[in-house]
Amino acid sequence: MKNRRIILYIFCTLLIASCAVDEQCRTNRTVLLGFGIYHVSYNDSTKLFTTTSESIDSITIKGLELDTLTGKYTYVDSILYNNTKAISAFYVPLHSFVTSSTFEITFNTKVIKSKNDTLKFFNTKDTLTVLHENINDYLSLECGCIKVHSIDTAIVTHNFIDSIKIINHTVNNVNAENIKIYK
């Protein structure tokens, strides 16, 4: 009789525990624009161009905010990547409430062009501006809303970077690669 009561008590406890509502947000709410760095080389023997992922020795990325009064760019307080070593891909947040985001990327690396031709880049800076649309994306009552983006255009200076290519215009919480940077 006593055992029956204990079993009933455990059953009821488990039943109540199983009915408890989980109010924690378990969805990723971070939305980042993904970049991959690539190097295109020409193989004389095969007469073909090959694209390989390029590892940068060190990289520093800062956000630039346009001051509407002075018309000049100022650094955002926090640095996104601070002299980060051996990097071939990076992820940055786009502005949630303005439709353009600008970043300053500082490269420190060597690029081997051929057996006898190695290029050295020391504190070489490029500015990258992304024009985008900001869209509200409602997730749930627990997670609320996030801003996802649709990339329109990307403009870049060419001190280190040769060219860029947008491969995925949608920037969401999947955090996939959106833009390829070619050296």
Binding site: G63, E65, V76, S78, L80, P93, H95, S96, F97, V98, S101, N136, Y138, G144, C145, I146, K147
Partner: peptide
């Protein structure tokens, strides 16, 4: 619903 931009700054309240 409050959207906060942790890096660039700013908040936006939303209601449906």
């Amino acid at each position: 619903i409050i959207i906060t931009d942790d890096y660039w700054g700013g908040t936006q309240p939303i209601s449906y």
